[in-house]
Amino acid sequence: MTIADTIIEETPHAGSLYLDSFKPRLMDWTAARVFAAKNLKIAMRYPANFLIWGVLPLLWLAPYVLMMTALGGPGTSTSFTELSGFNDFVKFAIIGWFVYQYVDASIWSVGNNFRYEQFSGTLEPLFVTPVPRISILTGAALSDSIQTSISAIVLLISASFLFGVSYALTAIAPIIVLLLMMILALYGFGFMVAGMILVFKDPSVLTQFVDTALFTVSPVNYPLQALPTQARYVAYLVPSTIAIIVIRELAITGVFELGQFLSSATGLGITILFFWLVGIASFKYAERWTKNRGSMGGF
């Protein structure tokens, strides 16, 4: 018997056995885990990236800090203290950039995940696997959260050292809880961006536009009070806004207030629910739209 005969004989059996046991699910955690492990394996092949992505944002953060120093004087300004309630704008900005790294990652990595698969030529094979697409995106998001955490910590440590600031670690547990909740909400947001990129293809413009718009309304370098009134409402639609404000306060003051924590956790819980529902719905719609037009593999 030839090898070809063996394959022909075995294939229908193997295929039917798998397909017989296959049941469509909303989420396949095994697939998500496998996909996360695959992405992490690729990331580990380029270890310098972790360091570079930790240091590179320093070059984007530093111009803001230097500009604020040149305009307001070293470290503090009356106007900034009146607006934000904090007297050190350098300390204020660094923690904002630390948290914003996760927003950046949700847009660039999770949102663009299928685009990267498309470039690697693996998008269509991936889409014919009997796995919910959301599991693939969740896997990408999980691996990305690990990578972003490493880079964000490198950024926080190096920026704190360079600009001579320090943060209180007394409220580290609530900070971690809020950060995790924000990351979860950002997954939903990333699904939404992934859907948009499936439809519009050219990710550079769309991604940069979304990123710049979110960065502008987010309280990263300045407090929400610095924004025009309408922009403040838009800011609360960004999944990271509540987290940036509360995490910053906990990290700078080190004072934990249960009431404030619970209300922000509730706010973030609602944000998670909202963005997951909207994210999954918009991704599914975008996927159907793209498939109907036969433009899944198009550039």
């Binding site: 500009m67 604020m68 305009l71 900034f80 704008f89 300045y222």
Partner: peptide
């Protein structure tokens, strides 16, 4: 578009149209 966040940040620290620093 990149200029707008700088403008907001500048306004937050200066609080007016003139910066003595």
């Amino acid at each position: 578009l990149w200029f707008i966040p700088m403008l907001i940040a500048g306004n937050a620290v200066v609080g007016g149209s003139e910066s003595a620093a």
